[in-house]
Design a protein around this nucleic acid. Structure first.
Lengths: 167, 167
DNA sequence: GAGAGATTGTTTGGATACGAACAAAATGTA
DNA sequence: TACATTTTGTTCGTATCCAAACAATCTCTC
């Protein structure tokens, strides 16, 4: 969406397909740029930081959550990572094969699975996260310093709205 | 990330894993909330608007680009949609099976493939896009009206930075 | 304590998603 | 005109990603 075309060109094209119908172009720009940004940032970080460790974006996020919160239940990891539990099963299989995570049944509740990091996983994250954060910092630097927290808050507000207005 | 935990809790956990190393928490919050928002918004719109037409997010975006710009070359659609050409081949196969798009070789350049919408595809988009935009509008409404265009511009700036700092 | 109901992680099936290798076509160069 | 180079869309292999169905386990109620 709106890749190489200007905003005005795109709006003009859309308007010509829908004579008379009112369109919220600001809302459209927010949502479409949200996705272009997320896509571009994910691909950028995957190529520059993650690929050399055989990590996908999602695999890194899952590893990050397990690293930060330690010995976590899968349902919590799935929620924190923003992925479904079905997806998590597959990602954990990958991370286990790479030797970064471990899985064990909970003794207290036989339904739960507890995820932990191996020594290799711990060592990786101690090196990788600071490097990853440096790239995050560079990306966020395109936003004026006084606006970054506000930006994060607005994104958070959109997330909450999307999650709570589903039914 | 940072699903149910507070920001302060998360920062405290991260700091405890990396004694001494400086971390840019504002940059971290921007990037992580960017992804939570994009994920949540995509899933929300897929469930509420797109699923009833058997459209995934990506399929809708591709259809939207072909609808707005009409008779487009696939390389242009891929770029505008923010996906690889390999992915586009698969998505177009799906859209063609659903009867929304057509494909034909360019007469001028035998390498190119031109994508167009069927009458069914046109009719769908004339109805579907205004409905989709209404949801976009509701999502963007969580941002103060005077900040929406600024937000879109900041997201656009991040996209450009990510795309141009790859090598 | 027995059985209905709820919760959890996995499997299944289908659709993305990418890079790399590829074949076809166009372009540049000698 | 040959022929190397570039461009384009597809195929291949692998990894996500989700909803729905499922089996195992726990909880609640009587």
């Amino acid at each position: 969406m709106t890749g190489s075309h200007t905003l005005a060109e795109t709006e003009s094209q859309v308007a010509s397909r829908l004579q008379g119908q009112p369109i919220d172009f600001s809302g459209m720009a927010v949502v479409s740029n949200l996705f272009r940004a997320a896509n571009a940032v994910r691909n950028h970080l995957e190529r520059t930081v993650l690929a050399q460790h055989n990590l996908s974006w999602t695999a890194f996020v899952v590893l990050w959550v397990a690293w930060v919160w330690q010995e976590s239940e899968t349902r919590m990891i799935a929620e924190e990572s923003g992925i479904s539990k079905a997806t998590l099963t597959g990602v954990l299989k990958t991370l286990e094969k790479l030797g970064f995570t471990t899985r064990r049944r909970s003794e207290k509740d036989g339904r739960l699975v507890i995820v932990g990091l191996t020594a290799k996983g711990e060592a990786l994250m101690r090196r990788l996260f600071p490097e990853f954060n440096k790239h995050e910092s560079e990306l966020a630097a395109v936003i004026p310093e006084g606006r970054r927290d506000e930006m994060a808050n607005h994104l958070r507000a959109m997330t909450i709205y999307a999650l709570t207005s589903d039914q």
